[in-house]
Every structure is written in structure tokens, then in C-alpha cells.
């Protein structure tokens, strides 16, 4: 029994561009995430500082990381869809 994909997938000319974009976005998010961990380890008191409304940095940064992930995901999908529409269409025409 073979072990290829469960469904037959067409060639995706945009895959390399999408991969590059994914790596860039991954690095961006990793840096923001690493900064959060670094603050916790290096200057933990900074986490308690009130920064927005009456909320401290820990809460704002924590919520921010979650919302940032959602936003990056949406941007990534928008860009990837654009790449696919452009490059795979070129191939077809």
C-alpha cells in the first residue's frame, strides 16, 4: 500500500513563496513571544507595571500575543491566497 497524500493534490507553484512568507512571519512572532518570556525572566517586576487603562503589562502582553497570532494568521492567509491566485493562474493560462 502506498503512503502518498490521502487526496490527489495539484501542483502548487506558489508553495515556495508561501513557505518564505511563513518563515518570516514565524520569526516575527517568535521574537515577540521570546521578548515576553525574557521580560518574565530578566525583569519580572516590569510585568506588574500598569500600562493600559488599569491593566498591567502581563495581562496586556498576554492578550496581545493571542490577538497578534490571530491577526498574523489572517494576513498570512490573505497573502497566500493572493500568491496562489496569481501564480497558479499564470500556470493554467
Amino acid at each position: 500500500m502506498d503512503h502518498g497524500p490521502a487526496v490527489v493534490l495539484g501542483e502548487d507553484k506558489a508553495s515556495r513563496r508561501k513557505q518564505k512568507l511563513g518563515v518570516k512571519m514565524f520569526i516575527l512572532y517568535s521574537l515577540v513571544y521570546a521578548a515576553f518570556v525574557a521580560i518574565g525572566v530578566i525583569d519580572y517586576k516590569l510585568m506588574g507595571k500598569i500600562v493600559l487603562g488599569n491593566l498591567n503589562l502581563a495581562v496586556v502582553y498576554g492578550f496581545g500575543l493571542i490577538i497578534f497570532a490571530i491577526l498574523l494568521g489572517l494576513i498570512y492567509n490573505w497573502r497566500c491566497t493572493k500568491f496562489e491566485n496569481e501564480m497558479n493562474k499564470e500556470e493554467q493560462s
Binding site: D2, A6, Y29, A69, Y76
Partner: peptide, 26 residues
């Protein structure tokens, strides 16, 4: 844990999702 669990999806989306779909079967 909430922050870390969600951040993990960034790795899944940006690095793993599409290539894995292309490579695997079950």
C-alpha cells in the same frame, strides 16, 4: 499555558500545515 498553547498554532500554521498536507496520507 493559554498564551503558550495558542502561540504553538503559529508554528503549525506558518511552518507545518501546508507541507504536511502535501506529504502525508494517514
Amino acid at each position: 499555558y493559554s498564551i503558550g498553547y495558542l502561540a504553538g498554532w503559529v508554528v503549525a500554521l506558518f511552518l507545518v500545515a501546508e507541507p504536511l498536507k502535501r506529504l502525508g496520507k494517514y
